[in-house]
Each structure stands twice: as C-alpha cells, then as structure tokens.
Design a protein around this nucleic acid. Structure first.
Lengths: 234, 234
DNA sequence: TATTAATAACTGACCAGTCAGTTATTAACT
DNA sequence: AGTTAATAACTGACTGGTCAGTTATTAATA
C-alpha cells in the first residue's frame, strides 16, 4: 500500500534561495568586522528589499540580516524590532523624496501644467523605478494587523503627498489655467494613478504579459486630465 | 533597578475576540447539525470577512471556521485548503458582478458618457461598499508569496475588467463622442481610481480623519475625465 | 586589557493540515 | 411505529515546522 503523501504546509517556497555563506572559514580570516557607522543603512537597504519581495509579516528577520551580511541579533542593536525597522525604511526611502518635491513646488514659477507634468513624472519615477515603490503595497497589506503603521504612514506620507498635489492644482485654479474643479477629489484621481503605477510595477507586472511604460503612462495621465477625452467636435 | 519588561511578540492583537461558545452544553441539545448545502456559502462569507480584515497569510483557518460556526476540519471537507478557499471567495464575490457589468455593456445603447458614468458607479459601489472591495488588497499583499494567486487574479479578474473599460472607451472613440485617445493608458487611469477607492475604503479610511464619498468621487472622476481641467478661457 | 560589536543558540508562541473518533441523520428491517 | 444498522457530516487534539525576540558568549578594536 502506497502511503498517501502528506500535503506540505503551503508555506512560502524558499527553495531558490542562496545558501548562507560558510561561516566556518579558516581561522586566519576575520569572521566579521565592527562597522558601526555603515550598519544602519545597509540594514535598511536589505530590509526594504525583503519587505518589498515578501511583505511585512512574511519577511523573516533572519533573511534581512543575511542580506545585510549580519546576524539577526545585530538588527536589534540598531533597531527596536520589526515594526520600527519598517518605519525607519519608510522614513529613509520616501521622506527625502517628498521633501525634494515639496521644495521644488514651493520654488517653481511657470505654467502649472508643466509643474504637474514634472512632479507626476518624478513621483512616477520613484514609485515605478525604485524599491520605494513597494512601500504602499507593504503598508496596505498590513493595514488590518498593524493599525499604528497605517496611522504613521497617513501622517508622514499620505497627508503630505495629498497636500502637495492639492497645492499644485489649487495653484492652477488660482492662476486661471485650470477650471474651478473639485480639488480634493481630483487629487484622489492623481493619487490613484500613482498608486496603480506603484502596485503594477511592484506586485503585478512580473506575473503579467503586458508591461507598462512609466513615462508614457504619466504623460498620458496629464494630457487626458488637462484636456479631457471629450471630442472637441461634440 | 526596574527590570526592563520583555517586549511582547508583535503578534496580532486578538484580545477583543469573542470566546468560542461553550461546547459542553447539556446533552439534550444538539451540538451541531448536518447542513451540507448551506456550509459552502457560509464558509465563503466567513472567509471573505476574515481575509478582508487580516489579509491572507495572517488569517487563521480556526477563525474562519469559528465565524462560519464549524470546526476547522470541516473547512477541509468543502475546500482543498487555504489557497483554494481564497480562490473560491474571489470567484463568488467578484465574477458575478463582472459578468453582470459585461452584459450591461454589451446590451447598452445610448451616449458613451452615460455608460461610463453608470459602470464606474457600479464598480465603485461594489469596491467601496461591499466586502468584495477588500479583494484587491488581499491579492496585492500576497503577490510576492503566492504567484499562482496573482496569475489567477490576472486571468479571471484584471484582464476582464480592463477589457470591459477598453470597450467602453473604444466605443466612445468610434462614435466620435471621445477624441482618439490612448485607450490602454486611459483605462489604467480609470483602474487606478477604482483601486484607490477600494484601498481607501478597505485599508485606510478607518484609520483616517477624512472620509470619501463614493458617488461624489465617481461623479467627479467622469466629469474631469470627460472635460479635462484646463480652463476653457486659456 | 577593557570595551563593545557581533554572533548563534535558545525560548516560547504560533498555526496549516491531518485523522481517529463522535454524533446526527437516513434507511432498512422488524 | 419503533428499533437498529449503516452512512457521512463534523469535531478537535495533535504534529511538525516556523520565526520574533532574548541572551550568554566570543571576537574585534582602541
């Protein structure tokens, strides 16, 4: 009688992972170095990479540590735990970009359409071409389990990003370039497009047949939003 | 010296959960009933609720079972496992809606703007006002860990939804109501807005101060998309 | 050698899936 | 109608593997 094989726990498939490097190298070589200054950013890089790939709950700190070239215990020398690590990642990966765009908007002089084009291009580039684009996915995924994380993200990122976009639209309305639209809801359309871009590039595209060209997408967004799709004839 | 308290494992806080009802009720009462026909849909309802709240990985089948009023073992009588359960949930919660909208689009005669308005309102209602709106969040969250699930969702939902929206836009272009726009990228703008709606309502809003009015949002989306935001004067 | 960065073994909580046993229901037979 | 045998729905304790966080120990450096 052939025994029915037990169904394996449907746990994440980790067979393709590189084995840890041999830790028992010859005694003459140093096993590790003290690199207090470099560790934090190396750890954050590693953490963002693994969080982006697995999501928050499913990443093992052992993996983050291995990727950063340290042991798990070392993570706790620099960060308070998994949740604090994610917050630090968000701060490092997103906030400098936000600040850069904010000051650009503050200093800008010229047509609002060009400004809109420029900042959507910048945001789209960050979300679509860097690992930071995976952060929305990570936060959204854990919203039910880690409410504190959502509040943090709302306060530090969403609120600021929305204010930024509102400012650009309001600027156009004030100057007469744009109609007196419903700014708050139009900001949400812009945010939705950026969110789509981020999620497509970081969650979907690798499994799909179609690819998305970031610049074409952002360009089309602005063009359609400015001129509408209605036929001028009609 | 006050001993530093050990940090609790940042596990999902389950203190607020109702205890299981007492299983050792008097022998005269029935402990359970055979309800073969009703079980599957009750289980699917429970599963969607818990998946929506916790996400896929973090939901315990014990919770799904408790919510459905059965034991964990029973889940396995009706479904092959956790992943199959999620697939069944998606099929039950989303596909009938899609089919309904598809046939509406097929049968529709009248101005394309009105059609666009109507189907975005319908989609927005489903994503924003029913538990089905949590499904995008659930799928996106697990994209890195369960690729098979993403492919399933791409094939069964995304592809069909995009085709639907393409059809509506192409219809307007063909009739001359709309300009000859970049349909594929404009579909993504629509999809992005619907995604925003779904994620806001199902992941963010309960933690935020602002609320989003679904009908206003959908109405504004169509209005802005049709007419654009550029001032007619300019 | 004193200090401290870093390691790695350890603890305890966790949970998907299994299966031997229990109970409700149905059918067959008085 | 009442009894009993057979069936199938259902239960829940158990297994085996997972992983965040802790800590005793070791090794690099000043």
């Amino acid at each position: 009688m052939t025994k029915k094989p037990t169904k394996p726990r449907p746990v994440i498939d980790r067979r393709d992972e590189a084995p840890r490097p041999d830790r028992h190298t010859p005694r003459t070589l140093k096993r590790w170095r003290r690199r207090k200054a470099a560790r934090p950013s190396e750890i954050l890089d590693a953490a963002l990479a693994v969080f982006a790939e697995r999501g928050f709950s499913a990443t093992r700190l052992d993996d983050v540590a291995a990727r950063a070239g340290v042991s798990k215990g070392t993570l706790y020398l620099y960060f308070d735990g998994k949740e604090a690590l994610l917050k630090a990642v968000v701060r490092e990966a997103l906030l400098p970009n936000l600040a850069r765009i904010e000051s650009r908007v503050g200093a800008y002089e010229g047509p609002s359409r060009k400004l809109l084009d420029e900042i959507l291009g910048t945001i789209g580039g960050v979300l679509g071409r860097t690992r930071a684009g995976a952060i929305p996915k990570i936060i959204i995924a854990e919203s039910g389990n880690f409410p504190e994380l959502v509040r943090f993200y709302l306060d530090e990122v969403i609120r600021r990003a929305f204010a930024l976009l509102s400012r650009v639209l309001a600027r156009g309305v004030a100057s007469g370039e744009f109609r007196p639209i419903d700014v708050a809801n139009t900001v949400r359309v812009l945010a939705g497009s950026m969110l789509f871009l981020a999620l497509w590039k970081n969650a979907i595209e690798s499994h799909a047949r179609e690819t998305l060209d970031i610049d074409t997408f952002c360009g089309n967004l602005v063009e359609v939003l400015i001129h509408g799709i209605a036929s001028p004839a009609g």
